[in-house]
Amino acid sequence: MRHFATLISLLRDRKQFFDEIRRDYKTEKKIGSLLIASSVFLASYGAIIGASSGWLQMISSAIKLPALYLITLTICLPTLYFFDILFGSALSFGQYALLVLISVSVISVLLFSFAPITLFFLISVHDYNFFLLLNVAIFAFTGLMGIKFLYQAMQTIDRIEPAEAQPAVLEPAEIDTANDFLPVDALANREKTLTSSSNNQQTRKRLLQFWLVLYGLVGSQLGWTLRPFFGAPGEPFQLFRNIEGNFYSQVFRTLFTLLGWN
């Protein structure tokens, strides 16, 4: 399957994949492939976690889990794109979509790789709270890895972008000679451009960090809205639950219950 081949090429040869993104090479095809491959992996993991509460929950979670990641991405993508182009990025919307899809794809692959472990605990340990926290830990870990991947991709592409704006790479000696023949104004202008480009790069880096926090917040809130993903033990199937509290307070409550503090 060509969709999975695209994902494998991303995992195997990151450098080339990032370079292809920068060159806008087959961006649309890559988006389609990563969308399908990550949806399949996330749906598989969703089905496993839902299987703890019957087949209806299994189907529901298989749809909800990929939706959680992909809808969060869709909600947050315009923020990243418009703010970045405001600060000098030359990438297109498709290239940004592909960049953020990379993180979702990495998360999906890692979750899929955790599937046998989750399945093992699902079969061997009949403790709802343990299963819940185990999955929160897995989601947190895979999420961090995905974010790290996205961060790397953005940094790599950002590093290449301004370098490309320069006409040629000059040796130090050549730079001195070249500077000798440049009018003072041109030199000052070039320094100004370089400083401005570096400032923009710094701003975009900070912007990305801010966006990642935003992405996490939107994702956790959407996850809270779309729950249940696991289904409570002994309770009938629920497509949705009433919105009460938030994701973080529930994680702490479960942790306290597990530790016997509640």
């Binding site: 969709h3 969308l35 399908i36 949806s39 399949v40 749906a43 749809i63 909800k64 990929p66 939706a67 959680l68 992909l70 809808i71 869709t74 959407l222 809205t225 779309l226 497509l239 949705f240």
Partner: peptide, 17 residues
């Protein structure tokens, strides 16, 4: 099937929200 699946993944939860 994959295309229909992808559309369902977006449509159903989004309409739920």
């Amino acid at each position: 099937t994959l295309t229909l699946g992808l559309i369902l993944i977006f449509c159903l939860p989004l309409s739920l929200v």
